[in-house]
């Protein structure tokens, strides 16, 4: 599984902006690595408003968000 976006340690709103760019490219799945709950929630909310499917797996301090087309 290759990470598309590494958004760890970035301030708001950069994690969402990076993901938005990937969504625009239209290549799925998009795999995002984040290390904060805020970024994780923001990305999830953003993807859901774009009618995309989101699944999140947490490992320790980090989360992997997988974004796919429905």
């Amino acid at each position: 599984m290759e990470i598309t976006v590494d958004a760890r340690g970035l301030s708001c709103p950069q994690p969402v902006l990076l993901v938005a760019k990937e969504i625009e490219k239209g290549v799925f799945p998009i795999i995002v690595k984040v290390d904060g709950a805020t970024a994780c929630e923001n990305i999830r909310r953003f993807a859901l408003t774009r009618k995309l499917k989101v699944s999140i797996t947490e490992s320790g301090d980090e989360s992997i968000i997988t974004i796919q087309k429905e």
């Binding site: 708001c12 709103p13 969402v16 902006l17 938005a20 805020t38 929630e41 923001n42 909310r45 953003f46 408003t49």
Partner: peptide, 18 residues
Amino acid sequence: RFCTVGAVRDIVLLKDFH
């Protein structure tokens, strides 16, 4: 994550009204 600046930023940048 209440934020008065993020509120405006998200509306303009992401069309997110949360």
